[in-house]
Every structure is written in structure tokens, then in C-alpha cells.
Design a protein around this nucleic acid. Structure first.
Lengths: 192, 192
DNA sequence: CTTCGATGTATCGAGGCGATATATTGGTGC
DNA sequence: GCACCAATATATCGCCTCGATACATCGAAG
């Protein structure tokens, strides 16, 4: 019943799109895929898997291990596979280009699975993200203008760095938008 | 009893060092001071104030409002003042230049109150922070080297950006260290 | 004189995370 | 063969944090 964090949902379903996997590997890949942005913990992953299972968005894949022990008993290693409903739900979640998709948390996952989206949806998300970041930049900018002189040099320096980071992020998104617009098609089909 | 997040502690005590204040304003200033790094919520602030009070690190300042209603009854606006123990504890927390002070969470607050520290302590914290960031950068770098070619261009782009951010952060700290070493004394005493 | 947004205190529930318990597996040295 | 250790793997628990919200008061605009 728990409306799980949709970040985990999206991320898990997205990875399972590339083939069945068990929890441990899921987490590892998650931290490779999105590690520069945030961390993924077991404490959230396993409960989320349980929910997805209950909702029928994923299912257990039989012990299809290559020739390995068909021996009963010992269960360890639960391999999950995405279901048809799961794929549908994934597409639906990922395709949402609304405001929530330009917040920090969701934007990262969306971007990580951009290859599954049409160019126009990608553009809408990127543009939303950009305006979101511009807001933040303006906030920091005006904050800094207002408080300048009233703060010691360390605090000022920190805010200066913050502003620069915000500006840089906007620039980055802008480049991505530009590339996307000029029909920068991914070389071939991304096989992976 | 709750060993409150030490980030809130440090931040609250630090602000109260500049004069008595009530919760609402505390939060506002916190979000000005450290807003580029993180957000501060009432849900953590008020319980923390309660703890600090219980530990005797802060105390209620009487309604010393200028001539304002000495009228009894109505209580609203609770002004807090830092105690002698509080100042001591603050100095002790802030002066800790150990590993925890170079993690993301704590480094920010420490830096925000750098003006209260001696140059050598500042240097130790900055150097610790730098090595912490270098570790992270190397992690990202090797990750990227290992997975390059196996990831689609969006994921690659995200990791490239992540690496650049990590490199940039190291550069920033290095500059701060350089400034600190070359006896870049804050002009006069920071009066604020 | 009322309405509205800012000021102000406070709490609650939902959920995320780190740490940890517990096995099993797979190598490496001997 | 086997002793040992690290990596693989599942799962949970409690702590803490946060966003939302409730509930007041106040000043200024209209």
C-alpha cells in the first residue's frame, strides 16, 4: 500500500527492463547509475521490492540458473523480472514530464533513462528542469545581493560558490537542450 | 537525551552566539546562512531547541522586549539565549577537526563559523575535507573508467558532469587552503 | 473592520537510511 | 581437503528527518 518513493520505483523498474536481477545487484547497479547524485540503501530497496511484487509490477523469476542446482530446499537469491504491467507503469511514470520531474530527486532518474523517451518528451523535461534551476539561481543571487557586506568572508565565499554551482548547472542543462534540439541522435541504438 | 544531529546543535548555538533569538528567526537565518547546501525544518529545529534547553546549553531570555507589553497571560515568542555552558560546548563541537567534520553534512556548518576558529584548526579541517573529496573524486573517476562504453550517452554525460563537479569542489577547497596558508587574514575583526 | 500574508510555536505521520544479523558462496593458501 | 576471508545476498529495526499542518497573533492595506 505504501506509495513508495517513485524514485526507487522508477529506478528498479528501469533496471529490470534490461533483464532479470536480484536485489543485491540491483542496489549495486543503482549506485553505479546514479551514485554521483545520491545513494540507495537496502532499508528502502527491499521494502520497495515487496511493494512492487504485491502490485504485480514485478514477479519472481524461477531459479533459471544455468544448469545450476535444481535442488529444492535452500532458498537464497531471489531473481526478479518485470511484468507487462510493470513495463506499462514504468513507461507511464517515466513519461510524466510534469513539475515533479524537474525536482532534484526525480530528474536524476528520468535523465538516467532518457534513452527510453522520445525526443520531445526529453525536451519538455529538460526545459522544465532548466526553469526550476533558474528559479533557484535567482533565489541565491538575490539572497547574496541582499546579504552581501553583512556576512563574514567565509560565509560570503560559500554563497559565492553556491551561486556559481547554480549557474553552472543551468549552463549544463542548456547545453543538453541545445544538443537535443539539434537532433543529436545517439549513435546507433544504445544496445545496453 | 537525544543526541541531536550536531549539525542543528552547532548551527543553533552558532547563531545564538550573535545574540538572542526565537525559533522562527533562527530557522530563517539558518536557511540564509546554509541555504545553498541544505534546508532546515521546524520538525527538527524545535525538538532540538527543547534538547538544548534541557541540557542547559541555552535558556529562555525573559520578555525583554523594549517597553512592550509586560502583560502576563499570552505567551508567544520564546526568545532563547546561549548560556556559558552553551558557548563552551559550541567551541568544543566547532573545534573538533576530526573525520566527521569533513563529511558533507558537518563541513558546511563548520565552514559557516570559521571566523570563530584559529587558522591552524581551519587548515586542518580544510585539509581533511580535501582528502575526503579527493577520495570521492577518485571513486567517481575509476567508476567512470570502468563503465565507459557500457553506458548510453545520457548516463555517461551525467557521470561526466558528476566527475567535473567533484574535481571542481577539490579545486575550490585547494584555493581556500592556499588562501589560508598565505595568511589571508580577514580584514579587521569580523564585527558580525 | 476585515482580510490577508507574515510571524510564531508546535507536533505528527510517513518514510529514508545506517547498522546489523545471518547465511551462502567462492577463491587462496597450505 | 580444509581453513579462512571477502564478497554475495536477504532482511529488518530503530533512529531521525522532513514536509505538512494546526493554530494563533499581528500589522498593513483597502
Amino acid at each position: 500500500m505504501g506509495t513508495r518513493s517513485s524514485v526507487y520505483m522508477l529506478a528498479i523498474l528501469g533496471l529490470l527492463t534490461d533483464g532479470p536481477m536480484h536485489g543485491y545487484e540491483l542496489r549495486k547497479r543503482l549506485n553505479v547509475l546514479l551514485g554521483t547524485l545520491r545513494a540507495f540503501s537496502y532499508g528502502s530497496l527491499y521494502p520497495c521490492l515487496r511493494d512492487l511484487l504485491a502490485q504485480g509490477l514485478i514477479e519472481e523469476a524461477g531459479p533459471a540458473d544455468a544448469g545450476a542446482p535444481a535442488l529444492s530446499g535452500k532458498r537464497a537469491k531471489i531473481v526478479y523480472r518485470i511484468t507487462a504491467e510493470g513495463k506499462e507503469h514504468f513507461a507511464q511514470l517515466l513519461g510524466n514530464a510534469g513539475p515533479s520531474s524537474w525536482e532534484d530527486a526525480e530528474f536524476g532518474v528520468h535523465f538516467a533513462f532518457f534513452r527510453h523517451l522520445d525526443s520531445d518528451v526529453r525536451l519538455r523535461i529538460l526545459e522544465g528542469r532548466r526553469s526550476r534551476l533558474e528559479e533557484r539561481r535567482e533565489g541565491v543571487r538575490s539572497q547574496l545581493a541582499r546579504t552581501r557586506e553583512r556576512l563574514d568572508r567565509y560565509t560570503q565565499e560559500m554563497q559565492r560558490y553556491g551561486l556559481e554551482s547554480a549557474e553552472r548547472e543551468v549552463r549544463w542543462i542548456s547545453e543538453l537542450i541545445h544538443d537535443e534540439r539539434s537532433g543529436n541522435k545517439p549513435r546507433h541504438a544504445p544496445h545496453n
